[in-house]
């Protein structure tokens, strides 16, 4: 295991928390382990280990190999680090984050918004047009909201993400 894999431990910790970071560090050390082995080695309850392993799998930071226990008939899962190169994992996350923010930006740009000065809730045009532009919760007259600050914030974040070089 190379030093590059350490990036995966940092990433796992930032996304899924301390236990995730410790699991990845353990997998870097031993290569492959079952949930029970991880639980014993790290002194963490097995339910937590299983939950975090599933989260790490969703984020494509770990993979597993499934082996059938011939005697007992159930499956054993051997977990290991992802085979993907860390840069690729980061690029993939960047691509997904950009896509999510762009979809949000598209929505913000194609709608106008109103807010309730009394309860502070924000509404889109479609949500309040039928209600004569009154707050559906407290009946206060709604005021138009300038959406440019939100779109600018999103555009800035998208631009920043697109400009980052991971290598």
């Amino acid at each position: 295991m190379s030093e590059k894999d350490q990036v995966l431990a940092i990433l796992a910790r930032k996304i899924h928390g301390e236990v995730a970071g410790r699991i990845i560090e353990r997998l870097i050390k031993v290569g492959e382990a079952t949930d029970e082995q991880l639980s014993q080695a790290l002194g963490i309850e097995i339910g937590t280990i299983r939950r975090v392993l599933n989260e790490l799998y969703e984020s494509r930071l770990v993979k597993y190999r499934r082996v059938r226990d011939e005697e007992q008939g159930w499956y054993l899962y051997y977990w290991r680090l992802t085979d993907e190169y860390p840069t690729r994992v980061l690029e993939e996350r960047r691509r997904k984050a950009v896509e999510v923010l762009k979809r949000r930006l598209e929505f913000e740009k194609s709608n106008s918004f109103f807010y309730c000065p009394s309860c502070g809730t924000r509404f889109s045009f479609d949500e309040v047009a039928d209600n004569m532009f009154r707050c559906p919760y407290c009946g206060t007259d709604l005021e138009a909201l300038d959406g440019s600050l939100v779109t600018e914030k999103l555009e800035k974040a998208i631009k920043l993400l697109e400009s980052i070089k991971f290598e």
Partner: peptide, 30 residues
């Protein structure tokens, strides 16, 4: 060795555990 620039901390989606779910889900989720 790939780096994790500190600016990434300012963007909520990048380190979010639900990023894959939002990416695969519909607009309502976002």
């Amino acid at each position: 060795i790939p780096k994790l620039p500190s600016e990434l901390d300012e963007i909520p989606c990048f380190y979010c555990p639900l990023l894959p779910v939002c990416f695969a889900g519909d607009l309502a989720r976002i």
